[in-house]
Design a protein around this nucleic acid. Structure first.
Lengths: 333, 333
DNA sequence: GTGAAAGCGCTAACAG
DNA sequence: CTGTTAGCGCTTTCAC
């Protein structure tokens, strides 16, 4: 009974269990019988046992840390994606470290230091772009990366087909018999992000023109990506002579701006004005918004699973996964 | 053979020496032939080799680590709070580790284990309760704790005065001249959470009765805490003979359920039905919802700041901070 | 649900 | 000076 630090063996002996059980109590407590667990925990604190970090690191196959870089503050969609990531990590052996980014400088400094300190097993980037050099550095330092919503040949990517999403929206409106149609999108070019809006518009226009409808400049409008700005714009659009009977908003948030404008003008939705969005945020449901659903939570889940998979089987080639879009019919169109 | 992090064996092989030599280069460089040393060092940096224990140690020690435990999936309010936390930490020297909890078992195993293995400097619990024992264990292991929305004497806490929030809602409706008023709240007793709903109701009733209005059983309704269930309930309530002219919903989410019911019944808001909520979620603004604002993002920010403060000055006494409520007048009441 | 046993990546004798 | 080898304290299959 000397003064040296107690080890897992001491705990095991005193608690009358094997070291495996003690280890399990520490690392996956729910795999241990509740009574046993309590007993072991008591012994642990009685002995003041603290696992030696170094030994632990040695035995661990990897660091057990996955980072997510996200522009957390801006859009609800990021949160939903993060939620998906969290849901798979919480039941895994990985710790979720969140880096929240609010400028390109900020992002770059993360991207520089992470490979150097190498204290992450993997990295998920949500709607953020990186340069070829940054990508190379990460892979050179054996840090697995999954990109959500930014395609890059050499890395694992999760994407959607924005263009075909646009087509779906057009198709739906055409089926409903609309011909007097407008588009409202985002003028923003977020410095660190990407802009799928033009793809959505392109698909939308293509499908319309297949039915002989041309979307000219008078039917394409841009506002910055918030509800208020879009509301103002939409109100203007709807007060023109011969206003559109249907509007495709490039995102749900903008669709909500349109909805608010319609309400102010006492337009009935969908009778006087049909509105269709894109994303299917949580709140789309709250508004009864008809929209193009893209898997947001799901994208986070898949990204995390893919990442863990790659960490454990590093030799597999990078995957590009295209997530399916579906049209959700609710009340606004 | 790209993929997982390089080990000392990889370095040894590539440099054409034994692992002992690599180890010596790392630990007692002067015992190694200069040329060999240089070669090994080159290989090390070529491979981006970082001893795992060191990487982990750096990850766990170099910068501070703050954990947030949150029932992430359930409610928008958690997300807003987390956002507040993230905003402070991103510009600090602290790393944000997110633990997302979906059951009481889950929470308890985190709470038991975190002080032992997870090496956190501080912990923020969002709307989660812990036992006296768990609190004690945390402080015994020098982990500072801040509780949001669950009061506990010995720990730092952030609270709001739900009861006075209820009063504010009542006061507002009374001022507007309403007397035929109903309350809709949550029947849920979330197992791991707390239930401030009854406090809100209590304050609400007290203020009403001061004006001679009694809220009897026929005016108090409960549904589970989601929009759909509340919508169904509200519809029933509003179709009764002599339906209420104003409804105080215990949360914004429930208020939105009420709004949807009103819409289905073609009731004009606020002319035919006034609706007031509680929380002031992001989406309250989208709906033009009049509501009691509680500082959500702010609560996260304050919690993080308080935590960092306590970590740096551990001798300060625990603080209980009560956050102010304000009424936000929008369009629904 | 639990224990035995085989590693994990690394350090530190020891021999050469 | 360098390589071989025996552990370090812990995690994690794999049986039972």
């Amino acid at each position: 009974m000397s003064g040296s630090r107690p080890t897992i063996y001491d705990v095991a002996k005193k608690a009358g269990v094997s070291i495996s059980t003690v280890s399990r109590v520490l690392n996956s407590p729910n795999k241990v019988n509740a009574e046993t667990r309590v007993a072991v925990i008591d012994t642990i604190s009685e002995l003041g046992f603290i696992p030696k970090a170094e030994a632990r690191a040695r035995a661990l196959k990897n660091l057990g840390r996955i980072g997510v870089i996200t522009p957390f503050f801006t859009e609800p969609s990021f949160v939903q994606r993060l939620r998906g990531v969290a849901s798979v990590l919480s039941s895994s052996q990985y710790e979720l470290v969140v880096f929240s980014v609010d400028s390109i400088t900020n992002l770059n400094s993360y991207l520089e230091t992470i490979p150097l300190t190498r204290n992450l097993d993997g990295l998920i980037l949500i709607s953020l772009q990186l340069t070829a050099e940054q990508a190379e550095r990460l892979s050179k330092h054996n840090i697995e990366v999954v990109l959500i919503e930014y395609p890059m040949y050499s890395l694992n990517c999760l994407e959607i087909d924005d263009q075909s999403g646009g087509r779906m929206a057009a198709n739906y409106l055409l089926q409903k018999g609309y011909t007097n149609i407008a588009f409202i999108g985002t003028a923003d070019t977020v410095e660190y992000g990407i802009n799928p809006i033009s793809s959505r518009l392109l698909g939308f226009m293509n499908r319309l023109s297949e039915s002989g409808i041309t979307l000219d400049a008078h039917s394409i409008h841009y506002a910055s990506h918030d509800i208020e700005a879009t509301r103002v714009l939409a109100k203007k659009v709807l007060m023109q002579p011969n206003p559109p009977a249907a509007i495709f908003a490039a995102t749900d948030l903008q669709a909500i701006g349109v909805l608010r404008a319609a309400k102010e003008l006492n337009l009935r939705v969908p009778q006087d004005l049909a509105v269709i969005g894109f994303d299917d945020l949580d709140l789309a449901e709250y508004f009864g918004l008809t929209t193009i659903h893209q898997p947001l939570d799901e994208s986070g889940r898949i990204a995390a699973e893919l990442l863990i998979n790659r960490i454990q089987n590093p030799d597999r080639p990078a995957q590009h996964i295209r997530l399916p879009l579906t049209l959700i019919e609710r009340e606004t169109a």
